[in-house]
Structures are given as structure tokens and as C-alpha cells.
Design a protein around this nucleic acid. Structure first.
Ligand SMILES: [Mn+2]
Ligand SMILES: [Mn+2]
Ligand SMILES: [Zn+2]
Ligand SMILES: [Zn+2]
Lengths: 137, 137
DNA sequence: CCCTACCTTGGACAGGATCTAAGGCAAGGC
DNA sequence: GCCTTGCCTTAGATCCTGTCCAAGGTAGGG
């Protein structure tokens, strides 16, 4: 993730301790943390970091395409560092845990022109719902 | 929609004027209203109806499977009376308007077992994003 | 080492949605 | 028809997520 910070710094981003810990927290596979979870984990390393800064940093990382923002139902949005390899999600309807999945096939191609209603369609998001092994036990 | 009310009454639902107007407002194709929009339209017919009752009624209709609840990013949830014919959505990323779509193919079948992570997968939701004709103009 | 534009901070604020306690009313039983 | 009772509705408080603000702090180019 440090190459991410380096990349952003070259684009004029100031490298602060707060941004560094947020980036460090957002690392790994199948990571889908809420803003408050990011804040809690960042605060373990940098206790004085504020909620506002976490929100600001997440918003900018999303805006620059480095982090994905995933809305799940009524709950808080989740932040996903795995933004560079497109993927979809498998969501446990009991506990809310998420896994990354890469289904076969191209859903974008499955939308016939007769169903486009004049929209310029650019993106498709697929969410599978089910019960995870832990919740099924 | 009156058969819906009749069905619910038989299951012990009290038939009140408030519930009737909410059900009347939620009728038609491509209908995806927010709770406040439902409230506004219901209030045209029944001015004293409260926001709380609209929320209560919507929650119960969703819980009984008569109305779909669709979460769109950061905005308010939308309520969709077209719950009995499964479908997916095409969402304008500018204005938030939605259309019902029925893509070809079965995305559930596109999730290989190797990608299921032990989940019991029961449902899939596909959201196409784009720009609607009005917003493109 | 300075300067300044950018960044961080706590707290106020806003919108969506839920909860509460008090009074209202649908509908079954007489 | 009218009572009764338990469900329903209501206004307003409250909660949660996320944004905004004004004041002070600091990264990093010169
Ligand atoms: Mn992911
Ligand atoms: Mn729909
Ligand atoms: Zn689970
Ligand atoms: Zn639009």
C-alpha cells in the first residue's frame, strides 16, 4: 500500500500520519470496513485521529479510484481497498460479512438494448446474498 | 392492489385508511418511491397521515414480501411494488431515477462453487448504472 | 528554516429512519 | 348497533451516518 501513498504524493497529496494509517488499515483481501471500523483501527495506531479526517481521507481515496465504496442495505457504507481488480460481492444476510467473488460471464452484455431505456450504461454491480458458514452453524 | 389489502386483512392486518392510501400510492410499473415521496403522495389524499405510519407500513409490506426495498448508494431507500416478478434495476447515477430491467442469462448460475466460500447463496441483485436520457441532454 | 497552502480537529449540523408514550379506532362478540 | 380490546396512528424525541465549519497545525517547496 506504500506505493499507493507514493503515487498519491506525486499527484500533490500531502503525506500525513493520518493518511498513512488509514491506508495501512485498508490493506488485504476481502477487506470491507465501515468508516467507523477504519477509524477504530486507525486510532489504535494514532489515538488522536478524528472521525472527520477518516471520512475525508476515505472520500478522497474513493474519488481517486483507489478504494471502492460499497453500500449494503441500510447499514453503513463499507470501504474496499481492492479497487484495481474489478469484482463483485457475496454478502451474508445475517451478519453482513462480505467476500469478493468473480463470477463467470459478463452481466453488462446481458442487458439487451431493448432494456436500456435510452440510458448510457457504464457499469454493473452484482451482489449475491446468502448465509455464511459461521451463521449457518 | 386491493387484492393485496384483502390478502393482508385475511392474515390479520387491520385495514385502515392510512394503509389503504399507502398501498394505492404504491402501484404501477417502474415505481420506486422514497418513503418521503410515498408520504407526500399519500398526504394528498389523507392530509393527516404521519411519516411514522408511512415508515411502519412500508416496513411491514417489505417484511411480508409485498414490496421491495431498494437501497441506492447514500440516498434514501426506494420502495418498489413490483415484488412478485423478479427483476433488476438500471439506475441513473446523476438523478437517481430507476427503471426495471430483465437481463438475459442467470447470474446465480454464473457463481462457480469455488467462489461460494461455503455460503448458502439464495439471491442475486444486479444494478446497472448509467446516465438517463433526461440527464444526458 | 520559513512560509503558506493544505490538512486536521471537535463540535455543530443535516437527512434518513426508528422509537416512545399517549390517544384513536377496526373489527369481532354481544 | 354498541362495547371492548388490542392493534394502530401520531408528534416529537432520538439515533445513526455522514458532512460542514472555523480555528489551529504542519508538510514540504523554496
Ligand atoms: Mn470487495
Ligand atoms: Mn423495480
Ligand atoms: Zn454471517
Ligand atoms: Zn438522470
Amino acid at each position: 500500500m506504500s506505493d499507493l501513498l507514493e503515487r498519491l504524493r506525486e499527484r500533490g497529496w500531502r503525506l500525513t500520519a493520518q493518511r498513512r494509517v488509514v491506508a495501512e488499515v485498508l490493506d488485504g483481501d476481502h477487506v470491507h470496513l465501515t468508516a467507523d471500523e477504519v477509524h477504530a483501527r486507525a486510532a489504535e495506531r494514532l489515538p488522536e485521529i478524528s472521525r472527520a479526517t477518516v471520512y475525508n481521507t476515505l472520500r478522497e481515496l474513493v474519488h481517486r479510484g483507489e478504494v471502492l465504496e460499497v453500500a449494503t442495505d441500510g447499514r453503513a457504507k463499507r470501504y474496499d481497498p481492492n479497487a484495481h481488480r474489478p469484482h463483485h460481492h457475496l454478502l451474508c444476510s445475517r451478519c453482513g460479512s462480505m467476500r469478493d467473488v468473480r463470477p463467470t460471464g459478463d452481466p453488462l452484455a446481458d442487458l439487451p438494448a431493448s432494456q436500456s431505456f435510452g440510458f448510457t450504461v457504464s457499469e454493473v454491480e452484482v451482489t449475491y446474498r446468502g448465509v455464511c458458514p459461521d451463521c449457518a452453524a
